[in-house]
């Protein structure tokens, strides 16, 4: 497994080229996001449609602390934990006023929250220019480790390792860390309390769970994962703008969680991987495929992508309502 994950970027890079290496890097970022959202939606059962806001918070934290915008150039190892913390605080800010809400109502408020964050980033360029508005922040410092910037390739024993591959390894390490943290939380007193709230909030209270604090903890933990992913995104792209953090992104991450198998970490990873890679495959494959089949392009690949995405969602919800890879117990029972 470890070997497989280690050689993947070389195979992908050699066989499919750098574009696909980028897709792979993004897939890892999405998996981190999906794992974070899984804590809120999958474990605690709190439907959050504004999750991408925490990704944005992490990304902007990085952008502001490591770019010419404020002339700050802090190192990534310092910024990423700060980004996680700031995102966590935003998680509590979102959580606190919504504690009494559930289901649809919660979804609507969180959706609004996500939009508010995006609008703030769009408009906080006056009177004091904090976010540089819709133009975004450019020339962000790439992440560097031990003085070496990951945006440049290095030579190891005569093999040239491109920057995209270096980022892949960094993202992979952090994804593994997040998976470990997620699994440990799930099998803990706190994780059980989250699931108990999802299953029956009244009974959870009667078991002595302070549901208010435990829910806030879920929001904060989930948000901090998103904050880390956001920081990585900013360093990787070297550019952030509000455009990257729209509602569609939130929905995409939610779909990864739901499609993969809510509350089941391996399922969520699968969901993240599939939804990050498959649409790209369509994007790259749609034009040549149509040219081959019809001799011309009938449907715009972008539309086709959304069409197939919707179709896939409907099919999964019809035939695998618990997700593609649900927990064993769920699977057993959905069959009944």
């Amino acid at each position: 497994m470890a070997l497989f994950l280690a050689v993947t970027p070389f195979v992908v890079g050699a066989a499919l080229g750098n574009a696909w290496l980028r897709v792979l890097d993004f897939a890892l970022l999405y998996i981190m996001l999906a794992l974070g959202l899984n804590i809120v939606v999958g474990f605690a059962g709190l439907l959050d449609l504004g999750y991408i806001a925490f990704y944005a918070v992490g990304a902007y934290t990085y952008a502001l602390l490591a770019s010419p915008h404020f002339g700050l150039h802090w190192p990534a190892w310092a910024i990423l934990p700060i980004g996680a913390l700031v995102a966590g605080i935003f998680g509590v800010l979102l959580g606190a006023p919504t504690l009494r809400l559930r289901g649809d109502y919660l979804a609507i408020v969180t959706l609004g929250f996500g939009e508010i964050i995006r609008i703030f980033m769009n408009n906080l360029n006056a009177p004091i220019n904090i976010t540089n508005g819709p133009k975004g922040i450019a020339r962000i410092d790439p992440i560097s480790i031990g003085g070496h910037s990951l945006s440049k390739s290095i030579d190891v024993f005569g093999i040239t390792v491109p920057g995209l591959t270096l980022y892949y390894y960094l993202f992979l390490v952090l994804t593994v860390l997040i998976v470990i943290v997620g699994i440990r939380l799930q099998n803990s007193r706190i994780g059980r309390a989250w699931v108990a709230i999802r299953e029956d909030e009244v009974a959870a209270k009667a078991c002595g769970i302070d549901t208010r604090n435990v829910k806030l903890l879920a929001f904060a933990m989930g948000a901090s994962f998103g904050g880390v992913a956001g920081g990585l995104f900013a360093g990787f792209q070297e550019f952030v703008s509000p455009e990257s953090f729209g509602l569609m992104e939130s929905i995409m991450v939610l779909c990864m969680v739901v499609l993969g198998g809510m509350g089941h970490i391996p399922g969520v990873i699968l969901g993240g991987l599939l939804l990050a890679v498959l649409p790209e495959a369509f994007r790259h494959g749609a034009v040549p495929m149509q040219n081959w089949a019809f001799g011309k392009v009938l449907i715009d690949p972008e539309n086709l992508r959304m069409l197939l995405f919707g179709l896939a969602l409907i099919l999964v919800m019809l035939y695998k309502p618990a997700g593609l890879w649900p927990e064993k117990q769920h699977r057993l029972e959905m069959r009944k």
Binding site: R189, V195, C207
Partner: peptide, 18 residues
Amino acid sequence: RLFAHMTARENVMVGRHA
């Protein structure tokens, strides 16, 4: 009011929260 999708053991384990 049980935690329906948790095992019997996990249900009791939640009771230890307090």
